[in-house]
Design a protein around this nucleic acid. Structure first.
Lengths: 214, 214
DNA sequence: TGCAAATGTGAGGATTACTCATATTAACAA
DNA sequence: TTGTTAATATGAGTAATCCTCACATTTGCA
């Protein structure tokens, strides 16, 4: 698996080389953040394809060489941003579903989650660019699948609580599918005009709710 | 919209320059076919990202310059291949749904269609490569959407026949969504192991059938 | 202050899509 | 047949951009 997180700033325990202490690490962290912020800005402006590594370096006021010290390649910057959004999304989903224990709760929580996700996609150009179709990078696709699996597991757990006799594998499989289809719906919805997108999201909600009723 | 079909081989009516007749056109068509065949082979081998235009030219035994005479850019070759698969798929779908007139028929036809599509995706490495995630190219995404819209319209028509009082816009919208989600399910299914993929496809079938029942 | 490790630098290497000036070929008129 | 011209073929070269690497600078500590 390709790195998601950038190279750790030399907190090496190997070889016991009397590692440097705080200032360096702080500076490194700040640099990583600045790189990510600049990359975000550039992606928001013109998309990740148009984002050139030289632009990122220039905007972050570092040399290309330094940039590559923190991120081994262009994809790793994009993946790091993607994973950050995913973490936010997972927290959101976990929060919403953690304490669900009946069908009504599940339905309302999920409907709400879909709205939140849709709003996020509409509001965040970077997220939109990274996920909307652009999955040329296999490593990015893997991140996406892993994310859906985690979210699917959370959903499956909630459904199992509601219906303890349901087959677990079946729940896991269909919950994973629902997560992926939800994502596909988002991608689709943001690539058509707003009115149609809204209708598609509503339709997906309906399909999901029907599916939940088993 | 970017060209899908390659540049037409000089059947110019403009300027009335006494156009050439058959042999040239036949030769051009053969060249286009050879290019597409070679591109297919290369994509099947290593994916479209790894396919270099110089490889295509070499394998097709033409110069790079000639290659670019027939296809204005790399994407246009891929789009042409994509559209050919789509045409096949549309014919398949239209055939299956054209004469459906009751819910039983719709359900069995659609279930069968899903199996056929799944089998196609499993069997065709080129199709898999072009559609599986790799939608970096916006023009390709447009082709995909147009395809789903056409198929969605066919599905909506079948559903309208079965339930004449249903809201047409609603049918159109949800049929379009179903087509896109079906595609998403295929992409997902072929990117996990076979057993899980099979289960995902079965799950999608179930979801679809439930949705159809209204 | 001196040293070694860590970090910074940017010119340049490498790849690859695509162009264009030139050469070749095909179709037709005389 | 032969000359003419439009269509087509050619491939060395251009451009864009990711990434490397040899060297310079900075940092933390003895």
């Amino acid at each position: 698996m390709n790195e998601i997180t950038p190279i750790a700033p030399a907190s090496g325990d190997k070889e016991a080389t009397m590692p440097r202490k705080d200032p360096t690490q702080r500076r490194s962290r700040e640099r990583v953040e600045r790189i990510l912020t600049c990359a975000s800005t550039l992606i928001a402006d013109n998309g990740s394809d148009a984002m050139r590594m030289s632009d990122v370096a220039q905007m972050a006021e570092i040399s290309i060489g330094s940039l590559y010290q923190y991120f081994p390649d262009k994809g790793s910057i994009i993946r790091t941003l993607a994973e950050r959004y995913n973490v936010l999304g997972r927290e959101c989903i976990a929060d919403a579903l953690q304490n669900v224990s009946d069908m009504n709760g599940l339905q309302s929580s999920f409907a709400e989650l879909i709205d939140i996700y849709y709003a996020m996609f509409l509001a965040e150009p970077v997220m939109r660019d990274i996920w909307s179709g652009t999955q040329a990078d296999k490593a990015l696709r893997d991140i996406d699948l892993a994310d859906s699996r985690m979210n699917g597991t959370v959903l499956a757990a909630a459904r199992a609580r509601i219906d303890p006799v349901a087959d677990r594998d079946e729940l896991e499989n269909s919950s994973f599918l629902i997560m992926q289809l939800g994502e596909a719906t988002m991608h689709l919805a943001i690539s058509v005009d707003r009115a149609e997108g809204d209708a598609l999201v509503e339709n997906f909600k309906r399909m999901f709710l029907r599916e939940m009723l088993g």
